[in-house]
């Protein structure tokens, strides 16, 4: 580890150019991004999630999520053999600081990371009285916080509990799928911070995206399919007891 050498190091020219475009951030400075060429989604592999809470912390850092509210959170399920339909679920502080130790006792355990499902037929945008929340042409469900009334109707309409009223801004807040990152060629903060690759950002319109191969070879499911929301967060290894 040559710290002194690294401190003197100035960014390599090529990297500097790449990073500059990310920094500047305005849509004009990511000129290659075309909304019509993307259709964003996420793949969550439950068999890989270790419940470390990295994603929850990363999301809070990246998006200034207020304490006690969550754009993403992790639930731990404990399903006993006798009572499959009534799992025991915990999510202490959204799993931000991890989970208490679990002991072997016959049942099965698993973690379920949750976030906005970026529904294509989203019930939340349907009910917004003013058009302050919407599905973008590239498939992200966003909130225009300068236009939102804070009526909380969308909070009621989301079947997954992904929305909340921001305690200071008094408008609705939710996962943006790190729209400010994915439009600059970065992955989301939660995916960046996930140590096991349990979360993968995916672009369904990109033929080279590994999600296509994954979907062909795995049994995936969305949450609450009976709600017919066109959810775009796909779960691999999702247990039937998950709600």
């Amino acid at each position: 580890m040559n710290i002194s050498r690294r401190q003197m190091l100035i960014l390599l020219p090529a990297a500097a150019v790449a990073w500059k475009s990310v920094l500047a951030g305005t849509p004009e400075s990511s000129p290659n991004y075309k909304m019509s060429e993307h259709w964003w989604s996420m793949l969550i592999d439950i068999s890989k999630c270790i419940g470390c809470g990295n994603c929850v912390r990363a999301c809070q850092t990246e998006n200034d999520v207020p304490d006690g509210y969550f754009r993403t959170w992790v639930e731990r399920y404990h399903v006993s053999d006798e009572n499959m339909t009534n799992p025991e679920v915990i999510s202490p502080d959204g799993g931000k600081e991890g989970f208490p130790e679990a002991k072997e006792d016959g049942g099965k355990y698993f973690y379920v990371p949750k976030l906005c499902n970026q529904c294509a037929d989203s019930p939340c945008t349907q009910v917004c009285p003013v058009g302050a929340t919407f599905v973008t042409p590239d498939g992200a469900v966003l909130v225009d916080q300068t236009y939102c009334l804070g009526c909380a109707y969308c909070v009621q309409a989301c079947p997954y509990g992904c929305r909340y009223i921001h305690p200071q801004k008094k408008v609705v807040d939710k996962c943006t799928l790190c729209y400010h990152r994915i439009t600059k060629g970065l992955t989301t903060a939660c995916c960046e911070a996930c140590p096991t690759g349990a979360r993968q950002l995916a672009d369904l319109k990109n033929p080279n995206d590994p999600i296509h191969a994954f979907l062909k070879t795995h049994s995936v499911q969305v949450l609450k399919p009976q709600m017919a929301t066109g959810a775009k967060v796909f779960y691999n290894d999702l247990d039937g007891s998950v709600r």
Partner: peptide, 9 residues
């Protein structure tokens, strides 16, 4: 929204 600054490089 796309113009917000990033924290993770």
């Amino acid at each position: 929204i796309a113009a917000r600054s990033v924290h993770f490089a």
